[in-house]
Nucleic acid binder design. Structure first.
Length: 657
DNA sequence: GAGCTAACCTATTCACGAC
DNA sequence: GTCGTGAATAGGTTAGCTC
């Protein structure tokens, strides 16, 4: 069915003469029509690209194209494909066949087109490379990369900068196609809040939701798509903007900046920045979403009531600063929804659902308040969790890449800001016990960033440094889940481990440095609430404090069921994205063994101290442990940890310079 | 458990078209 | 000639199934 072609590279590096081309283009229309290049009609030179494409299309279908001549997808076909892609980026075989009927491409070509299309999306959604981040961090707001990541134009709507640096328009966005209803389009001319083009990165966040919708109603597109796109555009742009903003500006957010009045500060380049008092895009949008990963000088507001009064912040120069914590003022109340919106909300909103409040300040999260505000203000959609886990490996890989951002001070500051001394100790333990962060991975090696990752190939990667799959959550969990994470895990679970072996199902530790901590919704005590999705728990029997399965995982799995009828949901791995978690794991043998390992529980040997404890006794024991730890009554192996913590505490007490 | 198939991914090459 | 885009390939991984 497909044209028979040998690899151009394998056959000959130089283009062969046309008449010798073995490629049969469109041979499924006319199988075995041996035409040569000499038989090809000549494309008129004075013709528009569309005409030339159409010409090539009409000619190429039934002719053998010479080697190296690649047919371009016709405009009409491209429109159809784009529409199909927007409806379903991953069409199954039936959908592909349906598309094949509508376009003048064969199934293989359609499949490749979708594959390339997805790759293109991911490529565009890739995060900043470490080099770019470094350039931004030390070069102010200047974009030094040759392949600059976009700055969202909506940035300028809420932040009035008097600096000469202007928001950079997105140079990579494709021209808006009429067949792309969900392609983020600037609403600046229509809405009070200008919404610029949202990079694909932001859209990636939405993709699982879209897939979920498709599963629920396998229709091409829901009716509310437009409004959804609007809200998505807004919310996505905020999250994306936060990343970009924080990535490029490592400054300490003024803690006393009010929400209702503009405030200003000075960027590292001594460029004054003024933030307008836009309630939907308030300071919290920046501060709460400002990850230490990208803005070392910014420490998130402590989500826990047990947080300390002081937090350690690191200035741009890398100096430790002790910042007095200021209790965050209450979040601005969203504008009351209209009756229509309430109606739609009531019809869809599920009871007892709570919007996830970032349980960890480590991960860059889109400001929930902004999300809710945007949903409330702009969309009649229910306040769904529009932020699933991005399937973009690069994004999360970098977000989890402790090597890029972590140091002792920031780590301590984060934990301390979280009000958890145990977490701080645990973190230090983990780093000391494992010899490094389990999250130390290679950064993104997207095409244009490939040199970065290639520069530091990991051991064992003979050919090239692979992506973060090799260090998926499961892998990290198996390989590097140390005492620290166990402590964190039990701490966040709020329950003790009844036995020596802590059974951890294929769920990931919420504190396992996974970047999807936005899925956790801690309660007032810092304990995670029942996650939004309880599917995983219902299947695995895990406690209700388990991590909510990633939307993409369930989506992908169910999509696979649709794609592969032979694949039964019964074999679905709970909480594991079949792609994102397809990491080769050390110590895992055959793939079936891997699968078995994933399906089976993971055994973690807990300290004796953690045995047979009730929740209360567990907490007491932990407190005792902390006390003993702080008193220095620890084993020699933990002495370094004591020193580190003591140093940090010394810093927090003012001896930081 | 091995082999096969299908699907997906990333990385890469290279033709094509615009400038 | 340069550069960006898109079509296509290569290599790798997974799941599901069969034997």
């Amino acid at each position: 069915m497909d044209y028979q072609v040998s690899s151009p590279r394998a056959s000959s590096p130089s283009p062969a003469p046309r008449s010798q081309s073995p490629i049969a283009w469109g041979d499924e229309q006319q199988p075995g029509s041996p035409t040569t290049a000499s038989a090809l009609p000549t494309i008129p030179q004075q013709s528009s690209p569309e005409y030339r494409q159409e010409f090539s299309r009409s000619v190429g279908e039934n002719e053998r194209h010479p080697k190296g001549k690649r047919k371009r997808t016709a405009a009409k076909d491209k429109a159809i494909l784009e529409a199909a892609y927007n409806a379903n980026p991953k069409p199954d075989k039936a959908a592909r066949l349906d598309i094949v009927k509508r376009v003048s491409l064969n199934e293989k070509e359609v499949q490749i087109w979708f594959q390339n299309r997805r790759q293109n999306d991911r490529r565009k959604s890739r995060p900043l490379s470490p080099q770019e981040l470094a350039a931004l961090r030390y070069g102010g707001m200047q974009i030094l990369s040759s392949d600059p990541a976009p700055y969202n134009a909506s940035f300028s709507s809420d932040i009035t900068t008097t600096s000469p640096v202007q928001p950079v328009s997105h140079p990579e966005q494709e021209p808006t196609s009429p067949a792309q209803p969900d392609r983020p389009v600037s609403q600046a001319g229509e809405e009070a809040e200008p919404i610029a083009e949202v990079p694909r990165e932001a859209r990636e966040w939405e993709e699982p939701q879209e897939n979920a919708k498709e599963l629920a109603t396998p229709k091409p597109r829901p009716a509310h798509d437009q409004s959804s796109a609007l809200s998505q555009s807004f919310s996505a742009s905020v999250g994306y903007l936060s990343n970009r903003w924080n990535a490029g500006n490592s400054f300490t957010t003024p803690v006393n900046a009010g929400r209702d009045e503009p405030f200003s500060w000075v960027t590292p380049m001594m460029q004054p920045i003024t933030v307008s008092p836009n309630p939907s895009y308030s300071l919290e949008s920046f501060s709460s979403s400002c990850p230490p990963a990208f803005a070392a000088g910014s420490i998130l507001p402590p989500p826990s009531t047990q947080s300390s009064r002081f937090r350690i912040s690191m200035s741009l120069e890398g100096k430790a600063e002790v910042v007095a914590s200021v209790i965050s003022p209450p979040r601005p109340i969203a504008a009351p929804p209209t009756p229509d919106m309430l109606q739609s909300l009531r019809s869809i909103r599920r009871p007892n659902l709570q919007r996830s409040h970032s349980a960890s300040p480590i991960v860059t999260l889109p400001p929930i308040s902004v999300l809710t505000n945007s949903l409330t203000n702009h969309s009649p959609l229910p306040p769904r969790l529009t932020r699933g886990r991005s399937r973009d490996v690069h994004a999360w890989q970098f977000a989890c890449d402790a090597e890029n951002r972590e140091d002792a001070l920031t780590a301590q500051a984060k934990n301390e800001s979280n009000g958890s001394a145990i977490a701080a100790i645990s973190l230090l333990r983990s780093t000391s016990s494992t010899g490094g962060s389990p999250l130390q991975q290679q950064s993104s090696s997207a095409k244009r960033n490939a040199t970065v990752s290639k520069a530091t190939p990991r051991p064992g990667m003979a050919k090239k440094a692979k992506l973060g799959r090799a260090s998926s959550s499961v892998a990290r969990m198996q390989s590097a889940l140390g005492l620290s994470e166990k402590v964190n895990f039990s701490n966040q679970q709020g329950v003790s481990t009844p036995s020596e072996k802590v059974k951890v199902y294929a769920q990931h530790s919420p504190s396992g440095h996974d970047s999807d901590k936005e899925n956790w919704s801690p309660d007032e005590d810092g304990n995670p609430r029942t996650p939004y999705y309880s599917h995983a728990q219902s299947i695995s029997g895990m406690s209700t404090t388990g991590r909510r399965p990633l939307p993409s995982s369930a989506t992908r799995s169910e999509k696979d069921y649709r794609k592969h009828p032979r694949r039964t949901p019964g074999n679905n791995r709970v909480g594991l994205n079949d792609r994102a978690n397809t990491a080769p794991v050390k110590g895992w043998g055959h793939r079936r063994d891997k699968r078995a390992a994933q399906e089976s529980v993971l055994e973690i040997f807990e300290d004796d101290e953690a045995e047979n404890r009730s929740p209360a006794s567990s907490r007491a024991a932990l407190d005792d442990e902390v006390e003993r730890f702080m008193r220095g009554n620890v084993s020699p192996s933990k002495k370094s940890d004591v020193d580190a913590v003591a140093g940090l505490l010394s810093l927090s007490q003012g001896n930081w310079r």
